[in-house]
Design a protein around this nucleic acid. Sequence first.
DNA 1: TGTCTTATCT
DNA 2: AAGATAAGAC
Length: 231
Amino acid sequence: MGSNSNQEKQAGFGGDNMYQYIPSLQIASTQGGSLINATSASINSGGTPSGFNDNGVGRASSSNPHGGDNMYQYIPSLQIASTPGGSLINATSASINSGGTPSGFNDNGVGRASSSNPQASMNKRNGSHQKQRFIWTQEHHQSFLEVIELLEAQNGTSNRKVVPRKILEEMRKRYPNITRENIASHLQKHRLHLKNLNNRELNNSATSLNSQLLLQSPSFVINPNSQSHKP
DNA sequence: TGTCTTATCT
DNA sequence: AAGATAAGAC
């Protein structure tokens, strides 16, 4: 009976990966830590003629399980505030206008899916309780990173690993609806990402080392004493 | 058994 | 690409 955290498919910020922290504009308040948050994506991208993704949420992807009809509509959401505890209160125009789902507020920074799609004949409220996918907002990810840092610091020299359950324990304080599975999945991507970065770096330094060595290798050193240079 | 990790699916 | 789910290991 818990309110689901979120729905919608994700935009993907013009191809950027989720680990790039998108600077957000934080207007506000020292009091109780409430803030109004707008991502620069919506501000800067200038594009978004459709104006949908000021939430970090994008369009429905082409593949969906329901025979290709788009059952998601993107609704700008308004992030109003956070409690002293830090949990966000999020109101979507959907929940406001429809008057429904008082519990529909989520802590996920994402608007609720609207079941009515103008071009879909499917008009009836989609009663199916398909589990909605969790969308990681910048806030979530930021929190995720912070928690990892915290846990790593706590672990100190001991080589205990930072594990989903521990992350969950911390993140729940802010985002009560988040699940261990959500985190485990995100953690997997996160680690994968770190690995990729690492490899890239190793690769780079390797190639730069290679080129250094190459440049120093006899065949590339111009020997002033030699008349001819044979590689 | 529950959790963690890795693989695979959508 | 990003998140969910299955499967394997412990």
